[in-house]
Nucleic acid binder design. Structure first.
Length: 486
RNA sequence: GGCCUCAUCGUCUAACGGUUUAGGACGCAGCCCUCUCAAGGCUGAAAUACGGGUUCGAUUCCCGUUGGGGCUACCA
């Protein structure tokens, strides 16, 4: 499928679940790759052993698969640039660290974390940038040898040049510049032998021949360190594209505290993958047209880094709900049926009590009235069980002293009908109303309350038809016996 | 605090110096339709953060202010 050399990657940390911001980043990478005939790589950045969560990788892959954001190379889909899990690439990083050490672009640091804390505090007091004081940069070869011999634990730091400017081009932010003096001598190799993000990321992006690094804006500040590393290794720079962050309603970075951030949370809440993908695609990107509803294929067709925004975007659920409604109505009756059966299985109702034909009728009646498939159960439980109680405010308004007698006549009329449809119910009701010399409306509202228990929902005749004659008549009699007016 | 970065309706966004009484969408309000609720149709309220420049002309370019966000870990 790859007609050129464009290669992008999504590089999450397996710390639990896929964040919706991560989904957005993965999606943009995916769309960019598909649009340009490139390759989309999934790489697992598990260099922090303390934060590793069992099963997180599987969960990540499963969630990506659910969302339809498929990768071309990655764990379980080995290509020519593997392995795709960083903890399996330790020897590679070690080799590159040695290279840096030999060139003098990096140095060993034997300082204890206690000393580091102290240095930090002192510099903070002096209002200086919180940087390492380069104590170990001045160690002699003999001193280093001695420390190594005694197995003193150490880290490897990058040697940042003094008084220069590090500039790079960003596809969404154009030129970005940093003064090297503001940069810390970043740790590249931790004392446990694992690389930090900065080293592993640069080495892997190069080795995996990544051409475009599309990632969240939280990485913008550390990009000069990465640029420096590319320079030390004498590697060609990829094109960076830093995406605006997804925000909470108060404009802080989207966090768990203020709502659901895990893709699986939205999945279990009943959001369609089509809606979620459509929604996050629009958070930070626009097609340049007035189109709002997109299929995945349309997103691929229209996606471009040129239309990526700079400012952070608030994750606004209301629009997501609307998109869910829109995508749900695009689903076929059969697709909704399958989803509805799933919901019924999770509900107190018994799954095989209702025929497909019956459920399909319910779906057609509720089509324009649901945002989630679950709404069918929540908003119209009367399709699944007789009303146990009757809405008091509706009863007060629609159930008059004479209503019981009128409905009794109507029920009798219905009983005499032979396999009635909507039209027959309507005719019967009109006849009874005429006979009683009352408007159709008073009968209609009363009967709705009687058969559904509530005052809202699909048309009454449709309700009667779906429920069937026997069930409807039964419910009417039950209502007559149980609804009190005033 | 320092560095980086961002700034159009409540929210997501359009506008790439003049075609703009700043457009669309979500949400909100009203009207129509109607047996209710929806759906649908129509209408409405709602924004260029502020101050200086540059220019015949600034939402658009420059500077500053203010405000927001990110980073500032042997986390990614």
């Amino acid at each position: 499928m790859t007609s050129n050399n464009i290669r992008v990657r999504f590089a999450p940390s397996p710390t639990g679940y896929l964040h919706v911001g991560g989904l957005r980043t993965a999606l943009y990478n995916y769309l960019f790759a598909k649009k340009n005939g490139g390759t989309f790589v999934l790489r697992i950045e598990d260099t922090d052993r303390a934060r590793f969560v069992e099963g997180a990788v599987e969960n990540l892959i499963d969630t990506l698969k659910w969302a339809g954001v498929d990768f071309d190379e990655g764990p379980g889909k080995e290509g020519s640039h593997g392995p795709y899990v960083q903890s399996e690439r330790l020897a590679i990083y070690r080799k590159h660290i040695d290279l840096l050490l030999a060139k003098g672009s990096a140095y060993r640091c034997f300082c204890t974390s206690e000393r580091l804390d102290q240095v930090r505090k002192e510099r903070e007091k002096l209002k200086l940038a919180p940087k390492y004081d380069r104590h170990c940069l001045n160690l002699t070869a003999e001193e280093i040898e001695k420390l190594l011999q005694t197995n003193t634990s150490f880290v490897v730091r990058m040697k940042v040049p003094e008084a220069t400017t590090i500039a790079f081009r960003d596809a969404v932010r154009e030129e970005v510049e940093f003064a090297s003096d503001a940069l810390d001598d970043q740790i590249l190799l931790k004392s446990d032998g694992y690389p930090t993000y900065h080293l592993a990321n640069v080495v892997d992006d190069h080795l995996m021949e990544i051409t475009h690094v599309i990632r969240g804006e939280e990485w913008l500040s550390s990009t000069p360190k990465h640029v420096l590393l590319y320079k030390y290794f004498e590697w060609e720079l990829p094109l960076f594209a830093h995406l605006p962050l997804l925000l909470n309603a108060d404009r802080s970075k989207l966090s768990k505290r203020q709502g659901d951030v895990a893709v699986e949370d939205y999945r279990t809440k009943g959001y369609l993958k089509e809606a979620l993908v459509n929604f996050v695609a629009l958070l930070g990107w626009n097609p340049g047209t007035e189109q709002e509803i997109f299929s995945k294929a349309e997103l691929v067709e229209q996606f471009s880094l040129d239309h990526v925004n700079k400012a952070g975007a608030i994750f606004n659920i209301e629009k997501l709900d609307w998109l869910n409604f829109e995508h749900l109505r695009k689903a076929s009756d059969g697709e909704v049926l399958a989803m509805l059966k799933d919901e019924i299985r999770k509900s107190p109702y018994s799954a095989n009590r209702y025929s497909d034909e019956y459920l399909l009728n319910v779906i057609r009646a509720m089509r324009e009235r649901m945002t989630f498939v679950r709404d069918i159960l929540d908003k119209s439980p009367y399709f699944f069980e007789s009303p146990a109680e009757y809405d008091a405010s509706v009863a007060e308004k629609r159930w008059k002293p004479e209503t019981a007698g009128q409905l009794k006549q109507l029920a009798e009329e219905f009983s005499g009908l032979d396999r009635p449809g909507k039209e027959q119910y309507e005719q019967a009701l009109q006849q009874v109303a005429a006979r009683l010399n009352i408007g159709n409306g008073s009968l209609i509202h009363a009967i709705r309350l009687a058969i559904s228990g509530v005052g809202t929902g699909p048309g009454v005749y449709e309700l009667l038809e779906i429920l069937g004659k026997d069930e409807s008549v039964k419910r009417i009699h039950h209502a007559i016996a149980n609804i009190q007016h005033e």
